[in-house]
């Protein structure tokens, strides 16, 4: 009898941990939404929900690139600085070259190109010279931020063509363009990670690099590409952000790398590589975004918000550990 009770208890505990393990973030997200809906009547309005996606979009897009990088057991600290650099490059191009539609194209290409180049350089140092991603991207971060300030003399770039603001503030069918961009990027990333050879290789390289190489995967090329992807997506966010601010700010995106890494880790992707998902990252980014939004709505001051965010990150990582133990 006693044993039976113990067995049931054991069973229910096990099924609870399994539930937490497999759907942990989704459940946390749900709990969060229910709680905020209780405390703020405005929280569940369509306007606020759309707002949340808009607020989240910038870091969520970068988090996609970071997910690729972290899945290969790497890290990219340069993304915040690349937001600034690509923003100032794009806005300056916008002002200096030709009339609007052409100028926008060139500005976009310039911004994304600088992101791709930075990612490429990081990838080369990591793969050819075997330096750890942490150090390489730390250096790229400092260099990029420095160049952003040098390029602008430390002053924001103002007086942009009014059409440019549409990118960051415009809406199509009521949905903000950054939100649409985010959905688009996540859709593509989902397909790439789950249904293409490259995606499979990303997981394999992160799971066991040497075994992946001996299975015929060009591991260096996979690693190089994830940093290029990360750089390009950081640049895309940088352009959207500069459009929303209607200016190119050399000090934009400070500390974004940490927000982004937090979203990815909260989303269940392992910093040791090989495990994680793009859906997890999306939920992670939403969890953090909703937390910020909800705490604002219920008038929790920003200092307390920082503490709460830190606690949430710790809980998420703890959940990840439970996952490994079971």
């Amino acid at each position: 009898m006693q044993r039976e009770v113990a067995a049931t208890r054991d069973f229910s505990r096990r099924s609870l941990t399994r539930l937490l393990r497999d759907y942990g973030i989704a459940i946390a997200l749900l709990v969060e939404i229910i709680l905020f809906a209780q405390f703020s009547p405005y929280f569940l309005t369509a306007e606020n929900l759309v707002n949340i996606t808009l607020q989240v979009s910038i870091t969520a897009i970068i988090a996609v690139g970071m997910t690729f990088v972290i899945l290969t057991a790497g890290i990219d600290l340069s993304v915040g600085a690349l937001v600034a650099l690509s923003g100032v490059i794009a806005t300056s191009f916008l002002k200096s070259v030709g009339s609007f539609p052409v100028a926008l194209m060139i500005a976009m290409l310039g911004g994304l190109g600088v992101g791709a180049l930075a990612g490429f350089i990081a990838g080369v140092f990591i793969t050819r010279f075997n330096i750890t991603p942490f150090i390489v991207t730390l250096a790229i971060m400092t260099i990029s931020r420095g160049i952003a300030f040098m390029y602008t003399d430390g002053r924001p770039i103002w007086d942009l063509p009014p059409e440019f603001a549409f990118l960051g503030s415009g809406r199509v069918a009521g949905i903000p363009i950054p939100t649409l961009a985010m959905m688009f990027v996540y859709g593509i990333a989902y397909v790439v990670l789950n249904q293409t050879r490259f995606g499979r290789y990303v997981y394999a390289v992160g799971g066991n690099k040497e075994a992946a190489r001996l299975s015929g995967i060009n591991t260096n090329s996979v690693i190089l590409w994830v940093y290029v992807i990360s750089g390009v997506l950081a640049a895309l966010s940088g352009i959207l952000l500069s459009s929303r601010m209607n200016s190119g700010q050399p000090n934009a995106g400070v500390m974004y790398e940490l927000d982004v890494i937090a979203a990815v880790v909260v989303g269940g992707t392992s910093l040791f590589g090989g495990r994680g998902s793009i859906i997890g990252t999306f939920l992670g980014a939403m969890l953090i975004g909703i937390l910020r939004n909800g705490l604002n709505l219920v008038n929790v001051n920003s200092y307390v918000q920082m503490v709460v965010l830190g606690v949430v990150i710790l809980l998420a990582v703890m959940l990840d550990q439970l996952k490994k133990r079971s």
Partner: peptide, 21 residues
């Protein structure tokens, strides 16, 4: 374990890894 397989990938993923083409 160290040089042949990706341990936390599935049987399916490990079998096709070298010939996804």
């Amino acid at each position: 374990n160290q040089y042949g397989l990706i341990m936390h990938m599935s049987v399916r993923e490990n079998v096709t890894l070298s010939n996804l083409r």
